[in-house]
Design a protein around this nucleic acid. Structure first.
Lengths: 245, 245
DNA sequence: CCGACGCTTCGGCTCCGGCCGAAACAACCG
DNA sequence: CGGTTGTTTCGGCCGGAGCCGAAGCGTCGG
């Protein structure tokens, strides 16, 4: 209860993340949805009692925000910066010397399409980013993103209207290095808007208990028509699309 | 038991960073220079024996790279990704609302100009970024950076020649949110090139035992002439330059 | 009301991991 | 060659933190 949020040091933050149970909880929350204490306990593989302690610490340090709803308590990552830090740690962790990953079907679904806090990731997200890039709608050069005039028109026609300079300081269009594919996808406010829009259109659907996104029939048609993914893409999503491009 | 593989590895990395002594060492290495075990021990405030253990762990996990030189062992951050992760953690740790820091003269020097792994940070770096921005040499909109045609010419005349698409995947021009000032400065390959160039020109000099950069006489003249900093800047560097300016 | 359920608090156990001093290596320096 | 300095290894101490079961609160539902 001792809210010491103002005096956090880097070591304190890192050591909060640096416990297996808590890291699993945080990773689960990277899906962007708020989860209950019980769900998080299951994700972490500990009892409710243990999980409660962990969650109290994380909330106390303001890494998590909590919302009471009836007899449930919903936890979510408190800020986008925290998601960013966890993402950066994932990148470091995944960078290890060629851990040959035993890829299960479960991982396969995650690699295809998943949420990354508030935007899409995985092969689908990369394909969308590539499509916008080669279409001249955004420039992805240099790991940074910038929407072109043409791009604004295209996005509006797709149902996305962002104010170029909404009051927020939050970057409009960032690129985010994909954890599984090692290629950039779109993040920032644009990334959020894209995810919202394709969820709205019913092109993808969130899956319970996982960060994976299911691509619907409508989605297959929609992504093909709007972002020009070849029909073959849906049959044999290339294992390693190759950075060549 | 959801993908606990990723969680576990994250936890390992984070818990390595999540110790006060190790975090201090890593923070010291954010200056971008390699340091000896003894120097790092002093930075961490522990004995050589303790430091040695910590360094062995960090090197073992490949967060640090080590180089033997005579009877010294020089440690440095192993990759830019690791620097990035630490930076992200710093951002989270510093995010606590406005605890007014008791600013010592030491901090003051750091706020004025310092290195951030491989590029400049602090008020000087922000002034340079602002200058390049208002001069139309780079666009900083949206937290992303992009060099203009005009910008390339300017940089060449300043002695910086970067290949637009060198083989590396590393972003050419990123922006990095300044830890102390909360405004963006230039990172990426361009940021590195700028730091190298101003060190080469003798405009700034590294200080021993700290990340601070000392601005030389030549530097004052140079920055004023090339980046149009007003003479008043050197006398009373404004506390909060304000984004408008 | 009363039971079921979700979550937290409490008490106690265990063990991991940081810390140090002393001693062992290793490299340079007379 | 010893002596000095930088670094690692060893052994032992100790505190902190994670874990659980049981019990205590709230909240929902009948």
């Amino acid at each position: 209860m001792t809210n010491m949020a103002s005096g956090n040091t880097i070591a304190q933050v890192a050591s909060l993340i640096g416990d297996a149970a808590r890291a699993n909880m945080l990773a689960a929350l990277m899906g962007g949805q708020a989860l209950t204490a019980g769900e998080l306990a299951r994700h972490a593989g500990v009892t409710a009692a243990t999980a409660s302690g962990h969650l109290a610490k994380l909330a106390d340090a303001e890494l998590l925000a909590v919302e009471k709803q009836g007899r449930h308590r919903y936890y979510r990552l408190a800020t986008a910066e925290i998601a960013h830090a966890i993402h950066a740690l994932m990148a470091v962790a995944a960078a290890g010397p060629k851990r040959h990953h035993p890829v299960g079907p479960r991982d396969e679904a995650l690699r295809l399409a998943r949420t990354c806090y508030d935007h899409m990731a995985g092969r689908l997200a990369i394909a969308v980013a590539d499509s916008l890039h080669v279409g001249g709608h955004v420039t992805l050069s240099d790991g940074a993103g910038l929407v072109t005039e043409e791009g604004w028109r295209f996005l509006r026609s797709f149902g996305i209207a962002l104010e170029p300079d909404a009051g927020t300081r939050r970057p409009l269009c960032r690129t985010c290095l994909d954890w599984s594919e090692r290629r950039p996808h779109l993040a920032g406010r644009l990334g959020t808007a894209l995810l919202d829009r394709v969820l709205d259109l019913g092109w993808v659907a969130r899956q319970p208990e996982t960060r994976a996104l299911r691509i619907t029939r409508a989605g297959e048609a929609g992504f093909t028509a709007t972002f020009g993914l070849p029909a073959s893409w849906w049959i044999a999503p290339q294992r390693h699309p190759g950075p060549a491009a």
